[in-house]
Design a protein around this nucleic acid. Structure first.
Lengths: 248, 248
DNA sequence: GCGACGCTTCGGTGGGCACCGGAACGAGTC
DNA sequence: GACTCGTTCCGGTGCCCACCGAAGCGTCGC
């Protein structure tokens, strides 16, 4: 028999993959869960295509990314939810640094992101945190002895068209708290968080803005408020007058 | 443009703290939850004291470690459970690399670690995983809809002298799955995991071996088996004939 | 076919940093 | 007070790696 699994150098090599500004930027961008082309990532990170290509190769070799070649394009995405979780956790532990606003456009985009965005495959931002809080308030989740769905919660999900049974069968955990970058409080991740986010997009309550931002649709606001037993005003993006301008 | 709270460089600087072999070794050693002197860590990592001192300063500045000066000694320990969790998560994602056994002593020490050890402040290794599994089997935990204590579990803990009420009041989550390095399956962390481990040590069911290893005491084996409704043989460290030799 | 495009490979350059030894400093010890 | 010991500060060295531009290669479009 062999031994303890992870030694120092092994851990260091994994951390080194995220210890570079450019690679970190790339991984954060990929947290939207979609596949990006190599050139897009190079432009986003502000480096030459050759440099980005190098980084992508390294990240793929390290197991953080998977690639898919299509014609002359090289698409990469995060290797899975566990990688997304790892990056989220790291980002959650990094010191929160309020950044100076650079332009009105940037302020609007930041406000839109702070209000609602995807975090790999689930919902984050104020809306994500509010969703979890309300589910706890309404007794759909029980947070006293861990974090678990109540029978009422199972019924509520069923009513939304999110049957729980297939989620239980999934290999990933049903629920998991994910520390929100902007709110510094947890939102809902795991199979359930992903299913809820997908469902809201499916039925048109949410729609993707550019990048990671998502927006409540005119129909989605009242519908979600009703489902949660909230006043529609509670869902207003009160943080800033973002409107719909955030097309980054 | 980038995101609101955590941008690429911020994430990269955090990751860079763990991206060095020596610093990674130091952090892994500190996962035992105790405070180590700078010189001890230098010897453990195999570098000059001046080099280790430099690394410690960097880790403290980065918020991963806290220090405590006592006379001419500088003691450092992990800054808290959240840092321990971060390192555990990273280690859990690192590829498991079977290492060749180097000596009989090393094999014995490794076997002792694989059987039972502390993971910052909670129990890990085969024993830790078995504990969680059995609690699920016995209906003390409910894993179907998240991870939650059942009423039976609350009573069981009370009988062990681990009242749940103060744990609920703690700021850290009551329970959390922590991926075990050696078993690659979850064991129990969070406030409850820490309280259980502390209690087992308090009542003398477990005792600390050298380093991170812990051992079942002659009295503790049958007692723990009885508490869990297991045959004492189920708790045997069957992986290897470790006996009590594992004094790193 | 030809050209445009996206990506990769390949030297070359530069900066950051891990490491050490030696000197200095403070705290304990006799 | 002299000595030891743990730690820190400092200068110097060498390695690793992020970056680029240029050239090469497959893919798509006209």
């Amino acid at each position: 028999m062999t031994t303890t699994a992870t030694d120092g150098p092994t851990l260091a090599r994994l951390a080194a993959l995220l210890a570079d500004d450019t690679r970190a930027r790339i991984c954060l961008a990929l947290l939207d869960g979609r596949a990006w082309a190599a050139g897009e990532l190079a432009r986003l990170a502000g480096v030459a295509p050759s440099t980005a290509s190098d980084h992508l190769t390294r990240l793929v070799r390290g197991g953080l990314l998977v690639e898919e070649r299509q014609g002359r394009h090289r698409y990469v995405r995060l290797a899975g939810p566990s990688v997304a979780q790892l990056i989220e956790d790291l980002a959650g532990h990094a010191p929160a640094r309020p950044r100076p606003a650079r332009s009105l456009r940037a302020v609007r985009a930041d406000a839109a992101l702070a209000y609602a965005r995807t975090c790999y495959d689930h919902l984050a931002g104020r809306l994500g945190v509010l969703l979890r809080d309300t589910m706890l308030d309404r007794g759909l989740l029980d947070g006293a002895d861990g974090l678990a769905l109540t029978p009422a919660g199972v019924g509520w999900l069923d009513g939304l068209g999110v049957p729980v049974a297939p989620l239980r069968a999934a290999r990933r955990p049903l629920m998991r708290d994910c520390l929100d970058w902007t709110e510094r409080r947890p939102h809902l991740a795991g199979a359930l968080g992903a299913a809820l986010c997908a469902r809201f997009l499916d039925v048109g309550w949410l729609t993707r803005g550019g990048g990671r931002a998502v927006r409540l649709t005119p129909a989605g606001g009242p519908a979600l408020a009703a489902a949660l037993g909230l006043d529609p005003a509670d869902l207003a993006p009160d943080g800033a007058p973002d409107a719909g301008g955030g097309r980054a």
